[in-house]
């Protein structure tokens, strides 16, 4: 699947099917620091992502 990451903006490929939780682990990201968006919707950690899915991992932490 295609995974869009921010800060800096880039795209990486992760093999599906895979749970959101596993994708975050593989990318070494803390669930508390990000949201996962598929299309217009937020998906929870237990969601199964297909190989043809496209997701955005959005950081929620700002320095302000």
């Amino acid at each position: 699947m295609k995974v869009l990451l921010n800060h800096p903006l880039r795209e990486v490929e992760v093999k599906g099917p895979r749970r959101v939780r596993e994708v975050l682990q593989e990318l070494n990201l803390l669930p508390e620091s990000v949201l996962v968006v598929r299309g217009d919707d937020l998906v929870t950690e237990d969601e199964l992502l297909k190989d043809e899915d496209r997701i955005e991992i959005r950081p929620v932490i700002s320095g302000g």
């Binding site: 921010n6 800060h7 508390e32 620091s33 990000v34 949201l35 968006v37 217009d40 937020l42 959005r58 950081p59 929620v60 932490i61 700002s62 320095g63 302000g64």
Partner: peptide, 28 residues
Amino acid sequence: EREIAAYAVVNKIDYIVEECPNAQGAKM
């Protein structure tokens, strides 16, 4: 912070995701 970001996404609030380029408070 994560709950507010989720609120913004769910309520379709168009906000700036990018960080301030001055990297406001790297310590924070």
